[in-house]
Design a protein around this nucleic acid. Structure first.
Lengths: 227, 227
DNA sequence: TAGATTGTTAATCGATTAACAATC
DNA sequence: TAGATTGTTAATCGATTAACAATC
């Protein structure tokens, strides 16, 4: 084992997306009273390659793992939640208080993960002033002011696809820097604005195609077997 | 340009996930009366590399594109919807009729894309027999029979994370082959069962980290500039 | 024709996996 | 010690991009 150097300054996206899984898995282990956890054990539980997990953890852990033992769970949990930003709450606003918007506004899991959706905006006047859980719904006109006042940087779009671009433009004008887009449409944004698309149709296509391919293959195998 | 051969037998996942975007974009163009569309034009609108789009289309198109013109929109739309399976409705069942479950049950976009969620299951007796839109909610006990009778192959899990594994086991026991998992937990499934995880927390982490990185960088630039 | 667009081959890039020496 | 586990280097794999000849 070599000395740990100034390596791993860049954490790849793929690693980033696995860290929450590690976090919730380790959390469970901690609750059941474990004191140490090894990368190999995590890999086995989560059906991942052990080297992959080791590399991921090496990138975020403040301590080096101990051979034969693994990582101290308390320390590792702390490192992970620091790294993931679960300690400092990030604020976000949401536009489009339909069924998906409501769902996100009331979802308590997000706040555990350091995201606090502070308010919802909608153009429907009937909704204005109402509360979903403890979150107020405000008219679109108040958005610019709200963003300026609170300095919030993340905007969530949950309006229908045909209104998404317009909402997106408004968000950008207000000073929002990162957009989490749940509408099934690609957004045009100025350079420097981050967009993460949550694309349910694409996921579905991938899944159903894998299924179709699998069924064809299984079928062929059967034919071969019985012939 | 060489002759088109028996190439592109394998369509990569990444391509698969882009095809729905092409589809909806081309659909819009068709509605606005265009007759031909070029891969280059699609690439520009969707901010993708032109070669990537050409390759993707080459994999699914029955015709070869015409230099200077591109692809005949009608033919291409037909190829795409055939390939994506939008023509033959795939049936799916859903377990967990909470707010997310309801959302999916009533979402009409899915049926446009060839997925028909035929029924919802829930363990809450108060819901049994109710209808969400035109979909019935049935007790869990009826699931095995329903799957056997209809031959449905896709199951959607929208229960809380701590119940997901149990539901997953039930689905597999019933004969479901592909699972679309919206619960934030990894599922243990027997070999051969397909799982697609819809992982909101992971997406969020990736987005907020990119944002943090960007803000640090922008900050540094400012400091450099002003000093 | 000239030029926009095509499809293919080769190069590049990024992520994952294999191999291995070091350590408790 | 012996063996499980660590972190690093090199090889592999898959997807994207660059370069280019062919075509209408």
């Amino acid at each position: 084992m070599r000395k740990k150097e100034e390596s791993s300054l860049v954490i790849p996206k793929s690693t980033l997306s696995r860290l929450p899984l590690y976090y919730s898995h380790i959390q469970k282990m901690q609750q059941s009273g474990e004191e140490y956890v090894s990368a190999s054990a995590i890999a086995q539980s989560l059906h991942l390659n052990p080297v992959l997990v080791r590399k991921d953890l090496a990138g975020v852990s403040s301590t080096t793992g101990k051979p034969r033992l693994g990582f101290n769970i308390t320390v590792l949990m702390n490192d992970l939640s620091n790294f993931l930003g679960y300690n400092k709450i990030d604020e976000a606003i949401l536009v489009g208080v339909g069924s998906l918007g409501r769902l996100l506004l009331t979802n308590k899991e997000f706040s555990c993960m350091g995201l606090d959706i502070t308010v919802g905006f909608d153009k429907d006047p009937d909704l204005h002033g109402l509360q979903i859980g403890d979150k107020f719904i405000l008219p679109m006109e108040k958005m610019a002011n709200y963003v300026k006042r609170t300095g919030v940087k993340i905007g969530i779009i949950t309006v229908p696809a045909d209104q998404a671009q317009e909402v997106c433009d408004q968000l950008v004008d207000c000073g929002i820097l990162a957009i989490w887009n749940f509408a099934f449409t690609l957004l045009n944004v100025p350079q420097g604005i981050l967009v993460k698309n949550e694309n349910l149709p694409s996921s579905l296509v991938v899944l159903s195609h894998q299924l179709a391919k699998k069924m064809v293959k299984d079928n062929n195998l059967n034919i071969t077997k019985t012939s």
